[in-house]
Design a protein around this nucleic acid. Sequence first.
DNA 1: AATTCTGCGTTTTTT
DNA 2: ACGCAGAATT
Length: 705
Amino acid sequence: MKNILLNAEQKKAVNHINGPLLVLAGAGSGKTRVVTMKIAKLIEIGIHPNKILALTFTNKAANEMSIRIKQLTSKNVIASTFHSLGAKILRESINHLNYSNNFTIYDEEDSLKLLKECLNHLKLKEDKAFLKTIKYKIASLKNDLKDLDDLNCSSNLNTNEIKVFRLYQNKLKTCNALDFEDLLYLSVKLLKQNSKILELYQNRWSFILIDEYQDTNFAQYTIAKMLSLKSQNICVVGDPDQSIYSWRGARYQNILNFDQDYTNATIIKLDKNYRSTPTILEAANNLIKNNSPRFEKNLKSTIKDGEKIKIFKADTEKMEAAFVVSKILHYKSKDIKSLKDIAIFYRTNFQSRIFEDLLLENQIPYIIYGGLSFYQRKEIKDILAFLKLIISNEDFLAFSRTINIPKKGFGKTTISKLFLISEKYQIPIIKLLKQFSSYPDIRLNSQQKIALKNYLKSIFELRKMYSQKIKLDKLISQILIKMKYLQYLKEDPLSYEDRKENINELITKAKENNQSLEQFLEDITLANDKTQNTNENSVKLMTLHNSKGLEFESVFIVGLEEDLFPHINSKQSIEEIEEERRLFYVGITRAKKNLYITHCLTRYIFGGIRPSIPSRFLKELNETYLDQQKDYNIKSTSTFMSTKTTSHISFSNKYSIGQIVFHKTFGKGSIKKIYQTSLGETLDILFEDSIKSLVTKYAKLKIIS
DNA sequence: AATTCTGCGTTTTTT
DNA sequence: ACGCAGAATT
């Protein structure tokens, strides 16, 4: 054990074996290190790896932890999110709750669609605001473990909302599906209801470690509590000042009350920061003091002081991006920093676009973390829906998504009616349709009848192939053929190339997959792999929320404007403002050496230019740590501003063979062939490892030489 | 009843 | 600028 690399407090935490332990760890104090080293220690003293359960908040964190533990001990330890843990427990044991073990998991979009179906069913207006509220309320009730049966007295739901909740829960069951919250809610229900099962899991994991404990909600807190009740070996690590998920039910009180929840708890504070310069850290400490009451920390840097924090006031969001990109170009051109050490953080996803444009113009590789995930794309979800139908008779949403692909006269009304009939007879939707002629209330026109028969025929052919153990990637290719999916995509030529490319990527991922189809689908729903390409040496773009747990040499936090950050929807209460402030605190403390903070005087938003007021948080940063940037290298900006205009200039002779072009995902490539297709001018381009055919009017290309 | 058209409102953060 | 829900059209 390389305890030598740990300080006294860290060692204490690592060497604490039995009994509840709370590690209050400030930003950059090496908390994840402590968790991984502690696990290594447990294995070293002879605890079987299977007995250890490490819980994290994101899949990325879970994966990283597994990898680090593997490196340290060459053993596999289960590191997962609470949601994956829930899925695992329920997959094994949900039959005790009268559910089927082969349930599917509905993501946010699916769950909203089902909720819409409920409103329809109850003849309630499909009002967007209402939909959002009810979704939020249902999620909150589940996260707070409120029982559906005593809703009337305890909840703030009106009678209509209660009806919707009931119906929604019923429909989920009809579809043999669970939503995200169910994974936690039903896990608790199961563990509470069945002491044998509880004991089974208590015995399975006798050491539980939880990272980012300040972000646990009541359901997660309860799962942890129940599972560790017997062994009492629970170690939680976190920082109340980094609690940024209260809108998802997180309660930072969980970490503050730990010593009351677990008697004999040992508390260890880590207050040495190994990440940031004193300037950055002091500024962050100062800022967070505006929140009260807090658990006072005295986080001290261990590094020699560094540059001041650079503040830049831009006229427009374009200038803001230009400033950031000019700084990055500066670092790049002088080889001062590698691109992978640079990150840009923003409050909302839509802010990323302008940075993307400018980075692309300047041939700076970048990766966006988060945003619309690959698996949330329409075409991917379509294919996944077909896959779901291969293994499910019940999944109504999968049916509803696919029945009209390609268009065959099935509209919303007909589809909803079919669902109601299937509910009425309590027969799974696919089974019902297979013999629709024996149900007089299924009224279809002759075109629909033929189309439905063909659709089902294809589904059953696919099922047959599946039962004959066809490879997953081949199965997807078969879906494309049988369902005429690519032809369907061509109906929208503007998006065709992109979507086809995404499907190819899905096929590639399927090829690498060695697990069951069920597991593949579950992983995709829960794991939400959002990384787009693998170029390590690229600038990272992400929301502040996504930045938690990461660190970078140089960080740009952009858009420090009232109503954007703090966000306009988070200004109702002091609590919300304080959470926004914690979010800023998280962002600041990600920076190791250089921190830039920018804001604009005007911003183009909702299709119009609006004046922006500097964020209140800027005033909360102590002047002594700041350096106002007056100007920046305009020269480089104007260059790329002009290239932007030239890129709009005409097409005919724009490209020639042998030219080098740059593409966001594929990188640099040379043009091998130019020809016309039905979609217009098309180029075959040789990229690093492959030749791609790209249609010039759709693919974003930049000519390099 | 489905598809096509059009004008309106919309954008917080994520498992 | 975009998507989506109602209106107009088939």
